[in-house]
Design a protein around this nucleic acid. Sequence first.
DNA 1: ACGAGGATGCTCT
DNA 2: GAGCATCCTCGTC
Length: 190
Amino acid sequence: MIPAGQGDSADLEGLLDGDVFTVAQRLLGARVRTSLRGAVTEVMLTEVEAYAGADDPASHAYRGRTPRNAAMFGPPGLLYVYRSYGLHWCMNVVVGEEGLPHAVLLRGGEVTQGLGTIEHRRRRRDNLTNGPGKLCEALGVTGDHDGTSVADGPVRLIPGSLPNGRRILATPRIGISKAIDEPWRYVAAG
DNA sequence: ACGAGGATGCTCT
DNA sequence: GAGCATCCTCGTC
């Protein structure tokens, strides 16, 4: 029996343990839940990308630490949220030991809770969470959440597995101009 | 189904 | 001043 109150954080540690590619794949099936101003929304992750820091020309941390990417140099489990194309927010979960700027970009999911709230935030009823900017808007994630912890912050990660029969597909990453051949995008087929 | 183009702001050179 | 880890609408086939 896992002691009450300890199970969640221990599970989360296990979820984030390992290299960024392993963790990225393991995140498929996990849930991201936000509780903001009393509104609870949640998705099951189905699309992510791994970014391997100093070894990855496409990573925001490839050239070292800057004010923007500081969260990536923090401990695993921090959120790295940045503005994309001046309009959208995108979120990453920091992976790997502190000081190693590896992160997993959360690109898409399936709504598991708070559909009404999400439709209202997205101002539409289709294509709600299939893209990194859409995912952040759906869950209400903004730059305010940069550097917060997915263990105990307003944006939480909840371990979980993909439904039976859904396999993981590896493909090149999307929307980048460097390291475009690395198959570090993972999607749950189906 | 697919492609072009515009909105918009911040980071780093 | 260039270049984005994007999204949406509208045009054409």
